[in-house]
Amino acid sequence: MIGAMNAPVDPGCVSRAGLNWLLHRAAHKLGSVAQDAAARHGITTRGQLVLSALASEEYRRTQLALGQALGLDKTTLTAELDRLERAGLVVREPDPTDRRVRVPVITERGRTVQAEVEELQVEVENDFTAGLEPAEAHCLRALLERLIVADHRPGSGSCL
């Protein structure tokens, strides 16, 4: 089965494929290499997504708010935070306004790992889009961001 994934794609199939298939196929190709980059640091792509959100936060979010912002359901986010916490990359602190609620906070070690994985993932993305002109790669990203932001339908399950 792995050989089939690496086989050349038939241009006739691609030209007739729906947007869903095209996006999934591109995401799979990019995602498997990005996952390998994250795994070199003992985390998953989802873990990197969580660390990146926590590293860039100007304010603290509860676990529930973080999950909603990232498109991760409660069970998936909790399991990921458990892994990141065991690895010493995040801690969960009580919310000062509601002690029943936890707020995930990235540790210094988590910031280091996040920055190293981000660097690897930028290399992976640059390699993936190497066949595009820089303006095309920028346009692709901008269009995907617009599609995601413009779609106000509720998400279904986790984004990763």
Rank of each mutant, 00 (worst) to 15 (best):
M5L: 14
P8H: 01
G12V: 10
C13H: 13
R16I: 06
L23W: 05
H24R: 13
A26P: 00
A26M: 07
A27P: 04
K29D: 11
G31W: 08
S32C: 07
A34G: 06
Q35H: 08
D36N: 09
D36A: 15
D36K: 13
D36T: 13
D36M: 09
R40V: 10
I43K: 04
T45K: 08
R46F: 00
Q48T: 07
L49D: 04
L49H: 05
S52P: 01
R60Y: 05
L66S: 11
L70Q: 05
L72H: 01
T75N: 12
T78R: 11
E80F: 09
L81C: 13
L84V: 03
R86G: 06
L89T: 04
L89P: 03
V90T: 15
V91D: 04
D95M: 02
R99I: 10
R99P: 13
V101S: 05
V101F: 00
V103R: 03
E108A: 13
R111P: 03
T112L: 06
V113G: 02
A115P: 05
V117M: 07
V122C: 09
E123P: 01
E125S: 15
A130T: 14
A130S: 15
E136Y: 08
A137C: 15
L140A: 12
L143F: 08
L144V: 15
L144W: 06
R146I: 07
L147H: 09
I148A: 10
V149F: 09
A150R: 13
A150I: 04
S158L: 02
